Simulated assay, not measured.
Amino acid sequence: MSDLRVGVVGVGVMGADHAERVARKTSGARLVAVSDADRGRAEALAARLSEGLGGESESTARHSGGTAYVDSVRVVEDPMELIAADDVDAVILASPGFAHADQLFACLEHGKPVLCEKPLTMDAASALRVVEAEHKLGRQLIQVGFMRRFDPEYAALKQLLDSGELGRTLLLHNVHRNKSVASSFRSEMIVRDSMVHEVDVARWLFGEEITRITVYTPKPTSLVAEGAFDPQLAVFELASGAMADVEVFVNFQVGYEVRCEAVAERGSATVGLGSGVFTRAGEHWGGAMPADFRIRFEQAYDLEVQRWVDATRRGEIDGPSAWDGYAAAAVCEAGLESLSSGTPVDVALADRSKVLG
């Protein structure tokens, strides 16, 4: 089959990372266009990626023949024009969340498979409309960027829990810490943009929906503005009565740290304890901690995009669906209400059997 021609909408930190991944690492795909509200940023990225891979080894060059150049990447000012373009087969959406709904509807209208970074949309109602619109097409085109499902450690944990070797899974303990975030990263964004990953992890590992969420706001770090709540502690209650908790601390100062411990009837299993060389020398012991999420989950992102490309070329999706994005949005919406009220809030989730038939 010919290469999948990919366009990327939004080339900030995550979008630029994905654009480079498609251009330099992903087999069976070709980056053809980028779009961003900051045209200068898009032009700089397109120019850099169009210059070629002269410094790369043959083994890391995108084409199997080890060619030293990528095709020219064009800049499209209007993201809707990029989505509609005849030379764009599929789209990666890494634009701000508030733009996702309109851009997803455009992808569905033009029949373009799309890998959409979280959140699917900014609220549960619009996310459900996206799910319904996709269902009417009779074909799944939307995959949501919950990349932890592709991380080898998380994938191994899922396989272990599903095997039944440890008995029924009863609890999940999660830690999600960033070194720092911009001062504009508000308390609500901790729920919608950070905690949402643990929402999806809990749903995925347990294989069931979250029915209630409580968000607690302990004493905040002195490094945030007055009125901001960081860290946050959330408790998820699932349909079977199982529970999960997560601490999200986005100004941890030390580095990027994500851990998950599953507690089952006959044992427990933990991922995210660190990898690489663990040293003991000079009266110190330990290992390195990554500076940000792109380092910790680089392999997960690589696998996610490669599998998305492979599945798209087969006419399928191979990852979290639009429904998963909607369910996460519904939980986060309830989480925002709990953040405001300080009380448990039930998750209002549509009947999946009625929505999807």
Rank of each mutant, 00 (worst) to 15 (best):
L4Q: 04
G7K: 01
V11D: 03
M14D: 07
R24L: 09
S27Q: 10
S35C: 11
G40H: 04
G52A: 06
E56F: 09
E58D: 15
R62K: 08
S64Y: 00
T67Y: 10
V75R: 12
I83D: 14
A84C: 10
D87Y: 07
A90L: 09
F105M: 14
A106M: 02
T121Q: 14
A125V: 12
L128D: 06
V130W: 11
H135R: 15
H135G: 07
G138K: 08
Q140K: 14
M147A: 13
R148K: 15
P152V: 06
L160G: 07
D162P: 11
D162C: 08
G164Y: 03
E165C: 06
N178E: 05
S180Q: 13
R203P: 11
S222G: 12
L223W: 00
E226C: 04
L233T: 08
A234R: 03
M243G: 03
M243N: 02
A244T: 13
F249T: 06
Q253I: 00
C260A: 11
V263C: 10
A264Y: 02
A264S: 15
G267P: 04
V271L: 00
G272W: 02
G274N: 06
V277K: 11
F278Q: 14
H284R: 07
W285F: 04
W285S: 15
W285P: 03
D292K: 06
R294C: 01
I295D: 15
R296K: 15
V305E: 02
D310T: 08
P320V: 03
A330I: 05
E333L: 07
G342M: 03
S353K: 07
